[in-house]
Design a protein around this nucleic acid. Structure first.
Lengths: 338, 338
DNA sequence: CTGAAAGCGCTTACAG
DNA sequence: CTGAAAGCGCTTACAG
């Protein structure tokens, strides 16, 4: 590798000052057009690489945006990330991604690293148990935060997520409308805002229909296919013999359907199953999954836009921005069989 | 937000020099133990945030490692990334992730950004059509590259991936052993080294068994569930009436099984299907998927280790490091029905 | 064991 | 339209 090419290398080779080179490369109108062209050509020839660390040390903006979620391998977050990526690419920001796996420590380390790198902002789906100080750490050091998919007490940042309580009530009402009365709720936890909201939406829908809520029909568990798959055994051995299941999300629903099928029953006929999120995969599951569209792409797009706007100086209103979920009826639900 | 706390802030507050502070915070034995403790305590009190850009400008090492693959939402890459993450976390490196979606331009922009940030190294699964210059760009600027999952002509970097030709022959032989003679190959492309190797392994296995290779039984397509699902229609309408399908990967296989089931046939009984990769999901698919373990976690772990070793100065041998695949027999394959 | 000083590669007022 | 110079916040020989 040859000598390192920097602004002064270009400057000397052209008999100009580094100030002029710097301005020209950033398309400043202060530099005469032909000088600018000559400079750019020379930079290309010499294989110049812009040193962002030096620039950012001077300007104190890095162009880096951090994104931290529970698990990027979960397609729910994947769909949010894809939308964020699209939006940030457009504005030439670099994004740094991390999983926190609901470890508050891992999340805090990420925020610290981001601060050390001079991150301009952070989009997070806060880990369970995140203390308000960890969010304040970012904000107090000039790195605004935006939340996606999860809320948190005691912080005052913009939040983008679906209306979980309403969404799950859509699914529950759909099953009630098909004649089901014994409806289980599978997967998830009550430790997140999302979890509490979804359970509440399910409870409210049942009550409104005059159906007594049976806590024995709640089977919490991991929010994964594996979780749904393993819940199938418990579900099928419930003494209440539920005829339908409202699942925490599509992954749990697909896992549950696999488990039900293994037991020789036909999901969508013997047992009705609803998902949540409307992942790309929901429509090609067999049977295709009745689920609730949860607007992941919208959440990601809006959150990224909000952050960029904030960085550009506009004063976005804080508080919760709820995306309205919509029902997607497919083959995994059907009328109750007598 | 208060005044920015920097080394000199701490230095002044304690009546010491920035040199001493800098050394103390990095645990240099040059600083007396009690001085060191006092300094660390003060740094904590003042809420000091280490400025990595400044440090890295000085030392020309950033602690940043880039990772770029086709699509992080694909669980195959997800499993590789998870292993890389585990390995890099341990050594306190920050990793920056990107998809290239097989766009050479997007990949090059990523490499350039990484160079601008002073990236120490890059792990890549090169986009289809990557020119050797794009890899040289990284290497010539002091940023070593390691490949995962895909090879490329004309570059001399360490490569970690599965032995595709051998792996697919395992799957093909398994089907032949069950009595299948008309075996289709579904999904994938011939534009990657992986694609060519897998097709060749399939062809070789057939030939070795004395089965004529019928190009009409090759149905290329996207390497996704959706791709497999959509291929089912073509597969089922082939005039050759194949009784088995070797799929490019687990995603294609699961999609194909869904499509077959939609058509009223039972995968694993009417049609035998093999996957490739042994994703976590393979074992809970219904029927559970017979597939080939492809060592994603190994690939990620070894590639990350190799890069860290290289950065630490050791001279890893370049060239291909092949992981030996293994057969995983489950329920999606069975003896041919007459 | 601690300090003074130079320098990493940019950008930005300011001067001309 | 272009240049000289200061400074962003660190680290590192070097001196004491």
């Amino acid at each position: 590798m040859a000598q390192k090419v920097k602004l002064s290398t270009i400057a000397e080779s052209l008999g100009l000052s580094t100030a002029t080179i710097s301005l020209a490369l950033r398309d400043s109108p202060l530099v005469a057009v032909d000088t600018r062209e000559k400079i750019k050509e020379q930079a290309r020839l010499l294989g110049y690489i812009y040193n962002r660390r030096a620039a950012s040390l001077r300007t104190s903006r890095s162009g880096i945006i951090g994104v931290v979620v529970h698990d990027i391998m979960n397609p729910f977050y994947g769909e949010i990330l894809k939308a964020i990526e699209t939006e940030l690419d457009r504005s030439r920001h670099t994004f740094i991604l991390s999983n926190h796996y609901d470890s508050v420590d891992k999340q805090r380390m990420f925020v610290e690293t981001l601060l050390q790198l001079g991150g301009d902002g952070v989009i997070m789906s806060p880990a369970i148990g995140t203390p308000a100080e960890d969010v304040a750490l970012a904000e107090n050091n000039g790195m605004p935060a935006i939340f996606v998919a999860r809320s948190m007490e005691g912080v005052d940042v913009p939040i983008y997520r679906g209306d979980d309580s309403y969404g799950i009530s859509l699914a529950t009402n759909h099953l009630i409308g098909l004649g089901h009365r014994s409806i289980a709720m599978i997967g998830g936890t009550d430790q997140t805002s999302t979890g509490r909201d979804r359970y509440q939406g399910y409870v409210n829908a049942l009550r409104k229909a005059g159906i007594e809520v049976d806590p024995g029909l709640r089977i919490p568990g991991p929010r994964t296919k594996q979780g749904g798959f393993e819940a199938a055994v418990n579900f099928l051995s419930l003494p209440q013999k539920p005829t339908a299941a409202v699942c925490w999300n599509d992954l749990v629903a697909i896992g549950l359907m696999n488990g039900i099928a293994r037991a020789g029953l036909i999901p969508g006929q013997d047992i009705s199953v609803t998902g949540y999120d409307d992942l790309e995969e929901a429509s090609i599951a067999t049977p295709s999954l009745t689920t609730v569209w949860n607007g992941q792409a919208e959440v990601g797009r809006l959150a990224a836009r909000a952050l960029l706007d904030k960085l550009a100086g506009s004063h976005e209103p804080d508080g919760i921005h709820l995306i309205k979920p919509e029902m997607r009826i497919r083959q995994s639900t059907g009328p109750i069989r007598r």
